[in-house]
Nucleic acid binder design. Structure first.
Length: 453
DNA sequence: TGGGGTTAT
DNA sequence: ATAACCC
């Protein structure tokens, strides 16, 4: 399977703090003013190794030496590296995994609570996505103390990078970035006991892709002079983040399969086939060009909880499933601290063809007299009210007088608003992210302090 | 094929 | 509301 799993991409960089973080005005300036300097930034991408498996091995160290798979329904969603030596991979059927490795130990990973907690420890919050750091400003502080070698692996011929091809100072910045990445990884290991990979380069695309060259628990650095060779070496157009199942299929339909195919395809042809904006984006990405800024972490815009199952055919079952979903979601909402403006119910029906990706949803606003009263004390009452609302949404989705067969239900809170004492003050000053004294954050701060003094 | 998330249309 | 993408 080519799809990878969320647990490998775990934390977002923290936000409001320190020299490490750019303010939005800096990001705008970078995009407008300096964007003609292609290597002006230094970006690190961090990717935790088989995260769910690592969490379970921390909880139960006996599992470290055994082949371990994390199970969700009848799938191994991830596994440790002992299991991988037997040929077990991510998103493999339990049946196939057991065939490859009969002694495989399975731990259920359907409840994400533990993973969320560890994730929060790693970065004050889980970032099931954007684990990038823009360390440009940090490495600039360290320029007077240049290491002689790169930390970790280097992609390509390292002797060529030094020979004055680029005078923008990118070599020094990226070199320093590699050492910063090594320190961050060491701190993560020491303080949390978790291993990860890192990629270091001058944009998000390259940092992410190059980090996958050496796994697990290693890091790889990519300098500008090796970028053409690196991109051309990637096997498929599908390797580009942003080219998923659907786009890859369209591309293949007119003969674009490899990365080189994509590089050589004319922009006009590409635009005609997949639309202007996507064409421009992935054409640039295919050459390693990516000016997307690292986005500061912010709280998620939705909180959702879902369950899949073989069958759910009666209103009674629906009621029970919704009750369970709402209950756990409500706990998370209270912990989050915000109030939900709307609820959404999503279902998946059993259907012969179109096996996946047939979801239907209905949403509605939550009456304000319900949401503002939410607290730890009256959660039960609120849950009851929410159940009524969800059942009415369900009746809009499904004609219960006819037979139905569901295989998934999802409940989501969206339109999340910060609680504010002064009625609608949040309307004028949207939620800003506070907090943040994370492992990484502290580490970086002490780092820059010791360096600037 | 799981249990989450985001963005664009 | 859906469809695409990400992990």
């Amino acid at each position: 399977m080519e799809d990878s799993n969320d647990e490998d991409e775990l934390w977002k960089e923290p936000v409001t703090d320190t020299t490490l973080q750019k303010r939005e005005t800096d990001i705008e300036r970078d995009q407008v003013g300096d964007s003609h300097l292609p290597h002006r930034r230094t970006i690190i991408h961090i990717d935790v190794d088989c995260f769910y498996a690592q969490v379970e091995m921390i909880r139960n160290p006996v599992l470290r030496d055994k082949p371990l798979g994390i199970q969700q329904k009848n799938i191994v969603v991830t596994c440790n590296y002992v299991a991988r030596e037997f040929g077990v991979t991510k998103l493999m059927y339990i049946k196939d995994a057991k065939e490859k490795c009969p002694q495989l130990v399975l731990v259920s990973g359907e409840d994400l609570t533990n993973y969320r907690n560890v994730s929060n420890r790693i970065s004050e919050r889980l970032g099931m996505d954007e684990n990038y750091l823009d360390v440009t400003d940090l490495v600039k502080l360290k320029k007077d103390n240049l290491p002689s070698t790169v930390a970790g692996h280097v992609f390509g011929d390292s002797t060529q990078h030094k020979s004055g091809m680029c005078t923008c100072g990118c070599y020094e910045r990226i070199l320093l970035g590699s050492h910063l990445a090594a320190e961050i990884r060491a701190a993560l290991h020491k303080e949390i006991g978790i291993t990860c990979c890192a990629g270091i380069s001058y944009n998000k695309l390259l940092a992410k892709l190059v980090g996958e060259q050496h796994k697990p628990n290693q890091q790889t650095t990519l300098f500008p002079s090796s970028v053409p060779a690196f991109m051309a070496k990637l096997p498929k157009a599908r390797n580009i983040p942003g080219v998923g199942h659907a786009t890859a299929r369209k591309l293949a339909d007119f003969g674009v399969v490899t990365m080189v195919d994509l590089q050589q395809c004319s922009l006009e042809d590409l635009k005609r086939e997949i639309g202007d904006s996507l064409a421009v984006t992935i054409k640039e990405l295919s050459e390693g060009i990516d000016e997307n800024p690292v986005i500061p972490y912010s709280k998620p815009q939705t909180l959702s909880d879902e369950d899949s199952f073989k069958s759910c055919c009666s209103v009674k079952e629906v009621h029970q499933k919704l009750r369970d979903l709402i209950k756990s979601l409500m706990i998370r909402l209270v912990e989050d601290g915000r109030l939900a403006g709307t609820v959404r119910l999503t279902i998946r029906r059993l259907s012969a063809e179109n096996k996946y990706m047939n979801r239907e949803s209905k949403q509605c606003n939550i009456p304000s007299h319900i949401i503002t009263k939410l607290s730890k004390d009256n959660q039960q009452q609120i849950c009851d009210k929410m159940e009524d609302i969800l059942m009415s949404l369900f009746n809009k989705l499904v004609d219960v007088r006819k037979p139905f067969h569901l295989t998934l239900m999802n409940v989501a809170f969206c339109n999340l608003m910060e609680r504010s004492k002064n009625s609608i003050s949040h309307f004028f000053s949207p939620p800003k992210n506070q907090n943040l004294h994370t492992t990484i954050d502290k580490h970086c701060r002490s780092n820059s302090r010791s360096n600037s003094t």
